[in-house]
């Protein structure tokens, strides 16, 4: 086991659901809530809470769009979120000596 300073880990991303959300959005411009729910395999409530948390810290940005009579919410990763994700992955790679 390698000692690791937990302060180097971004706690906001480290949660499995939030990590999955950020990883999905890394390769996309934006994605709908339902799309994220399928990819992350989370319940509506759980995903909503985690998306809200990521938005609060500025890692995600959202916008609402009307499509026909329905409103859909689209999420995208912000530059801050991208930087945090990259730092998180670098931290993991450092830990396993890559």
């Amino acid at each position: 086991m390698i000692d690791f300073n937990y302060q180097n880990i971004d706690h906001l991303i480290h949660s499995r659901v939030r990590l999955a959300v950020v990883a999905v959005l890394v390769g996309l411009e934006e994605a709908e809530f339902t799309f994220l729910r399928e990819k992350v395999k989370a319940t509506d409530g759980n995903l909503s809470a985690n998306l809200k948390r990521l938005e609060e810290v500025g890692y995600l940005a959202s916008r609402k769009e009307m499509r026909g009579r329905k409103t859909r919410t689209l999420y995208r990763l912000t530059e801050k979120g991208m930087a945090a994700f990259e730092a998180y992955v670098r931290g993991l790679e450092k830990l396993i000596g890559k």
Partner: peptide, 26 residues
Amino acid sequence: RVSMNESDAEEDLAFVRRIIEESRKI
């Protein structure tokens, strides 16, 4: 003192890679 297990980090990295790979194929 908080330690992170090496295998956990590897697991997380594999998880991230899998998700990115899947979303890249979108």
